[in-house]
Design a protein around this nucleic acid. Sequence first.
DNA 1: GCAATCTTCTTAGCTGGCTAATGAACCAGC
DNA 2: GCTGGTTCATTAGCCAGCTAAGAAGATTGC
Lengths: 152, 152
Amino acid sequence: MPRPPQSDSVDDQSHQILDVILHLMRDLRRCYDRRARDMGLTLSRAKALTTLARNEGITQTRLAADLAIEAPTLKRQIDALVADGFIRREPTQDDARKNALFLTDRGRDAAIVEFTMRLRRDLLEGIPRQDLDQVMRVLDQITCNIHELDRT
Amino acid sequence: MPRPPQSDSVDDQSHQILDVILHLMRDLRRCYDRRARDMGLTLSRAKALTTLARNEGITQTRLAADLAIEAPTLKRQIDALVADGFIRREPTQDDARKNALFLTDRGRDAAIVEFTMRLRRDLLEGIPRQDLDQVMRVLDQITCNIHELDRT
DNA sequence: GCAATCTTCTTAGCTGGCTAATGAACCAGC
DNA sequence: GCTGGTTCATTAGCCAGCTAAGAAGATTGC
């Protein structure tokens, strides 16, 4: 199929990069989950836990916003974290609809944060700071393009 | 919280980039799915379809390998694609366990490929080729780091 | 030629993302 | 103070990834 060579190579590149991102996400999640399993956590739940740790007492809606996920998605994670004894729900006084979320002693265990930080360091080992900055800029640009398209 | 500034910034950077990748993946999938819905497709199913189109007649195991997903994951997508009339399974003569996969006329509809290519172009609009190359290198490096860790 | 092993596909069940819709509580305005 | 809209949490149901395990067919090796 005869097409302009430049357009062709750009398409190949875009094909690869989107696939690479999708694939990397899966590898990342699997890597984290496998290593965190004996702590009783997953990547998503650990993220919920550490985000809550920075702001205890907030509601589910607020935590969902901080995590940039939807309320029903968070709800199931909270159920699991409560069942496993990492956090607890507590009805608020001012508003009977709201639950305030707090860490339990187990949830406050520093090993989780250390584990996450160490893994992140391992994953980014050997990548110069400026390269990460550059990647961040490009990924942000793609994200902006998506939001731009969504507005159409 | 007083910590060494350099270590702090590196951690912040890594924190951000992994989150950005996870988030970008979700946006990408949602963007594609929303726009492809009236064609009866999703990002994953379209990918399966276009990958099969490049190599019709292969088995499920082989297609799963090409897509880098597991057989049970692919099986459900094939079920859906068959139900929607995009592809068909055909028992092979040489091996009663295998199914050969073929596109139907609907599956061969060029609109799908065009749609996917156009969306990819839109997503990467305004990003220089060399930046994409750079991002690919860094993402590959992270992927390598993950596989390295998995081997431990 | 039969037993053991390997392959292919399937089933079952987990996680985590989403939307749509519901119920209960809150709030604003009349 | 009631009515109507809004917000919070939940339920239900979809898609897509995974692992573990099973059934049926093929292959290998003795």
